[in-house]
Each structure stands twice: as structure tokens, then as C-alpha cells.
Write a protein that binds this DNA or RNA. Structure first.
Ligand SMILES: [Mn+2]
Ligand SMILES: [Mn+2]
Ligand SMILES: [Mn+2]
Ligand SMILES: [Mn+2]
Lengths: 224, 224
DNA sequence: CATAAATGTTAGACTAGCCAAACAAACATG
DNA sequence: CATGTTTGTTTGGCTAGTCTAACATTTATG
């Protein structure tokens, strides 16, 4: 069964389950899915039950949610669509990197495999999206850079931004204003755990700023 | 209410009603809509009743279907989306003109106004789609070339193809093979009404061919 | 470790799209 | 112009997604 036979919401569910384990490895909860998708937990609970019946996820009531191999395949297809579309919107249509997420969230369900292939060809088989996230290859192989959240980086370290979570468009706009984007170089000046603040210097412009924990968790870095 | 608040099928209904009157002026029937959309008449009948309740069409049971001003506005928006997307797929993504209809049929419901504007700008505000159909301007003004179906053209006339109906992708592929596309020049050699055949010569390659009535109704021409 | 809080599930209701079957109206024609 | 055919409508039933409210299970904590 091709991914296009799944309903739009099934496609979003699978993509979200996969995305949750892309960087952490903690399986996602019903509640977190509901929060992220903007629906109630009962809706998600029911939706997951249906995916389990279709053999796309492993799930017993009140237990964890895991993708089956088939489910993972479809999830990766959707992630690939999403990230290629974001890249296309920035490269070809002059979108800013902080504007593309919502547009891609809808388009990903409407494009054909042919269109995705044409975009991939036109862009020269890109490997990272505008947020720095890896674009899975057509065969589904992911590549995970050795990165960690800015919030967990030792003070005094020089780092480069690898990726910025595209979950929150408002946050992306804020980062764009500050000059924070993939490949920006930073120095972590300090971590204040009780205040939940990370103090950084942006090497490009010398600005020193404090980021709250939501922001410092959304930005992933590697040692420069 | 923006057009994006309408359901996908409501968008298709309005677009189809408008398209039916673009060239003829005969209002479309429930049966013709059902046929064209691949659903049963009962489905369309019910759908039209709902559009009437929303003030988008004028329709009393068993009577004709007419767009209200609001309905027409939304319809033209959808036609514009469809034709700009088709043009974009051909110009930017190397689709052939006989491949784009089905892709646009789905994408038209997923794109934002912003995306349509960006495409329009990138393409330099095109006025005709790959099938020769006029692209309504953003303000909704249509422009209708003085064209008529090939089937109704006097034998002996030299003509240029203005548009080719994109309703049937198989037929488009057939035309593409023959070398028939918008702006192709033809001579009508004869009309055989009882056999429902139109005999033409394609000036580009000198080929003489017979077209059945479905084909000769789908091709619209102007005197050269 | 008993109980309260948090988390997840189920039941029932609503909307939307679709179909088949039964029905109603309009139209065509003898 | 009466009747039969064609066309359109209504009804009832199905799926899918969503919600709220009631309920069940798990987890945290005193
Ligand atoms: Mn989505
Ligand atoms: Mn992204
Ligand atoms: Mn459509
Ligand atoms: Mn077209």
C-alpha cells in the first residue's frame, strides 16, 4: 500500500511518531501527540488504535507507541516529503526559512511521488532542509549528525548550529531576527539551570543573548 | 470567508460549475457534474443543496444551478490556482503539458494564497495555461478569446489552436503524440457529420488525420 | 502501599463525503 | 396531453475525523 492511500491524519501521526524518536529515542506519548497536533487525547488514542489495526504501529492500550517496519517506511516517506518541500519553497520560491513549515505541512499530503522526484532532481538531491534537518534519501536511509541540544552544552564550548526544530513557527521567526540559523557559530558562555537560561555569544555579530529552555532545547549544535 | 475555508469537494464543485459556463453558457446539470467528478448524482445533489445553503449557488430542487457572486469569486480563485499550478509544473518542474492536470487537481486545494502569488511572480504573471486556457487575474477578471470548437469549423479554414480541454488526460496524451497543442496551426479539410469525423491537416508536419467528435469538441480554434 | 493525580480509553454525538435504493419531478413523444 | 423515460432528490447507511464526558489504568507520593 502506497503512503498516498493513508488518510492525511494517519500520515501526520506516523510522521510525528518517527520525528519524536529521530533525536531522542523516547517513544512519544498520546498526550504529547495530542498537544503537538492540536487535537484532544481521545482523538489521538482512537487514531492510534486504527493505525495498530492496520499494522502500522505497535500499541496495546495504556502502553507505548512504536512504529512497525511498514509504519516506519511510510513515516520516513512523509518526513522526506516535508523536508524536500521546505527546501524547495526556500530555494525555488524565495520563501524565508521561518515561513515554510506550515505550507509544507499541508502540501506534503497533496504531492505525488513524481512531483517529489522532480523537486529532488531540480534541487540536486539536497541532504539538509532549511532548518538543518537531514532529508532522508529515497531509499529511507536516515543520517543522524552527532549533535545535542544547546541546553546541554558545556559552557565555554564553541559550537555550530546543526538544526533548529521547526515545531514552532513563532520561535523560528524569533531566531531568524536574532541571526540564529543552521550553520551559525556560537560560543556557550554559561548555563543557569535554575533560571533555565543559556547564555551565548553569536560569533557572526558578537551579540550576547540569553535563551530560555524552550529555545535552548530547540537548537541542536555540534562542536565547532 | 476565504476559499480555503471551503471543503475540497465544495471547491471542486464551484470550479466545475464555473468552468462549464466558461465557453458555452449552458448551465451544467447535476448529472453532468456527477459524471465529470466520478461520483453518483445523489452525492452531487446533496452537495449542491449544501452550497445553496451557504449562499454559494442558486438552486431550487429540479431547477438549474447558478453561481452567486460569492460562489463565482471562489470558483474563479480555484480556476486561477489550477491553471497557475499547471503552468508552474510545466515551466519550472519540467512536466509535459499532458501530465499536469491530475497533479494540479489535488494541489489546488493545498496551496496557500501566498504560494500562488509567489508562483505568479516567478512565472511573470502568465495569462494562458499549458492547455491554452486563460488564467484569470488575481482580481478575477477573465478574458475569453473569440474561439470555437474545431468540430464547428467550416471546411477549408486555416486555424490556430487556442485551447484544448484538459478534462481527459488520455486524450491529451493522444493529442501530444499527434503534435496537436495550443498554437498549432491546422487546416480543416472536411466535416463528416454522420460519421462524426473532422478531417484536418497539421501544417507543422503536413499530416492529415481524422478526429472523432469528442476530440473535435475538445479542441478550440481561432481563424489564423 | 494506599490513594490521589495524571494519563489514556471508551462511548456517544456531530459533520462531511460517499453510495444504493426508493421516490418525485420534469421532459419527450406517440 | 397522457404516459413512460430521464433526471434529480431523499432516505438510510457506511467511513473517517473530531469533540466532550465518563470511565479505566498507570504513576507518583504521602
Ligand atoms: Mn501534515
Ligand atoms: Mn524542517
Ligand atoms: Mn480539485
Ligand atoms: Mn489546464
Amino acid at each position: 500500500m502506497p503512503v498516498s492511500d493513508l488518510t492525511t491524519s494517519a500520515q501526520d501521526y506516523l510522521k510525528l511518531i518517527w520525528s519524536a524518536t529521530e533525536w531522542s529515542s523516547e517513544p512519544i506519548t498520546i498526550g504529547a501527540m495530542a498537544e503537538r497536533l492540536g487535537v484532544t487525547p481521545s482523538t489521538v488514542s482512537d487514531g492510534i488504535r486504527k493505525l495498530a489495526k492496520q499494522g502500522l504501529v505497535e500499541h496495546a492500550p495504556y502502553r507505548s507507541i512504536e512504529l512497525t517496519p511498514t509504519g516506519r517506511e511510510h513515516a520516513v516517506t512523509m518526513v522526506r516529503r516535508h523536508r524536500l518541500l521546505e527546501t524547495f519553497l526556500v530555494e525555488t520560491l524565495n520563501y524565508r526559512w521561518d515561513e515554510v513549515h506550515d505550507e509544507a505541512e499541508v502540501l506534503e499530503h497533496a504531492v505525488s511521488d513524481t512531483l517529489i522526484d522532480k523537486i529532488d532532481t531540480l534541487l540536486g538531491h539536497p541532504t539538509r532542509d532549511p532548518h538543518g534537518d537531514p532529508i532522508p534519501a529515497a531509499d529511507g536511509t536516515p543520517h543522524r549528525p552527532a549533535a545535542g541540544p544547546l541546553a546541554a552544552t558545556e559552557p565555554g564550548t564553541n559550537v555550530t548550529i546543526t538544526r533548529i526544530s521547526d515545531a514552532n513557527p513563532d520561535m523560528l521567526r524569533y531566531f531568524a531576527e536574532l541571526g540564529l540559523k543552521p550553520d551559525t557559530r556560537l560560543t556557550v558562555l554559561g548555563q543557569r539551570p535554575y533560571a533555565d537560561l543559556t547564555n551565548i555569544r553569536i560569533e557572526e555579530n558578537g551579540h550576547e543573548i540569553d535563551l530560555g529552555s524552550a529555545a535552548a532545547e530547540a537548537i541542536w549544535v555540534v562542536a565547532a
